[in-house]
């Protein structure tokens, strides 16, 4: 056997257990779900009839589905750039300080380790209208008008984005920080000697070297935002994704169809759409971002 063939065998041996695990625990339920999207199964009913593309037709005629699809895209478009830029900036700043760095890291990661249900509840109160809302009290102390936040058609989705960014920021900072600390000092010093400003050396040297980290964060954060659910469920009245579906993401739509209306067929077809959306975005990101590495 040639060495390269031997390595191929080794690779498959290493992958054997995980692959069996993935096939049984992840792919089988996934395919099951895809199959259900062509049936009219009501969760608690024994009947599962094949209905072809009926569910998909129904979905695209459903205004609420289209709104939640659009909302899901908004969550990603607003949330991901914000969390990436902010965490990179904070991590870079944090990387400069010598003392108490561990303490700041701990404070920043705090929101991420607090249960999301509790976080959502606290933020719900921060966003309240007067007299209760903390944020509104601050605004009014500075002479601004009180804002409706979660009970507004325009502000509610961005408000939830802010909460989510706040939660995920610590996670991204830690991972960026890990990346930043690996960049050899000589690079920056060499750049300094060449007369580069610190901004130039950040964009020309640091950022490209961080690319594998950025790829990981952009892809995983996009997936996180595309699957947003818990905070919307807990920050809106009756978990409805309101007002008037203004904050409802796809996963909440799926959840309501499956567990409120027991319409598993429709929920599954919405899952297929969500799957394709995430897959498309992920492949695109991997393609574009990975290319940049080979500059």
């Amino acid at each position: 056997m040639k060495i390269s063939q031997k390595r191929i065998v080794t690779a498959y041996v290493f992958l054997a257990i995980p692959l069996v695990f993935y096939i049984v625990v992840r792919f089988y339920p996934m395919i099951y779900s895809f199959w259900l999207s062509f049936t009219n199964w009501r969760l608690i009913s024994p009947k599962k009839d094949f209905v072809g593309f009926d569910n998909f037709v129904k979905l695209f005629k459903d205004k609420v589905f289209m709104t939640s699809l659009w909302n899901t895209i908004k969550y990603v478009v607003y949330g991901v750039p914000l969390v990436i830029v902010l965490s990179l900036f904070l991590a870079a700043t944090l990387n400069k300080v010598r003392h108490l760095q561990w303490f700041y890291r701990l404070l920043y990661v705090m929101p991420y380790i607090t249960p999301l249900v509790v976080v959502s509840w606290v933020w719900r109160w921060i966003y309240q209208r007067p007299p209760a809302g903390v944020l509104n009290n601050i605004l009014m102390a500075f002479g601004f008008d009180a804002q409706p936040f979660l009970s507004s058609m325009n502000q509610s989705l961005p408000a939830i984005v802010v909460t989510t960014v706040w939660v995920n920021l610590g996670y991204c900072i830690i991972i960026y920080l890990a990346g930043l600390q690996t960049i050899p000092q000589e690079y920056q010093e060499a750049a300094k000697i060449d007369g580069a400003t610190s901004r130039q050396s950040f964009f020309k040297i640091t950022l490209p070297l961080l690319n594998p980290i950025t790829v990981f964060l952009v892809v995983t954060q996009s997936i996180t935002f595309l699957r947003i659910f818990t905070q919307v469920y807990n920050m809106t009245d009756q978990g409805s994704g309101g007002p008037l579906n203004a904050t409802k993401p796809l996963v909440l739509y799926i959840y309501q169809k499956a567990f409120r209306s027991f319409d598993m067929g429709l929920a599954s077809s919405a899952t297929v759409i969500l799957f394709m959306l995430i897959m498309g975005i992920t492949l695109l990101q991997l393609l574009v971002l990975n290319k940049r590495v080979q500059y």
């Binding site: 992840r26 995983t220 959840y255 992920t282």
Partner: peptide, 21 residues
């Protein structure tokens, strides 16, 4: 393909997996 397939498991919400599990 294996890499993408593994990543693809992140694209299904847990809510839809609990029944087969």
């Amino acid at each position: 393909i294996i890499f993408i397939l593994i990543l693809s498991t992140l694209m299904i919400p847990t809510e839809m997996l609990v029944i087969p599990w």
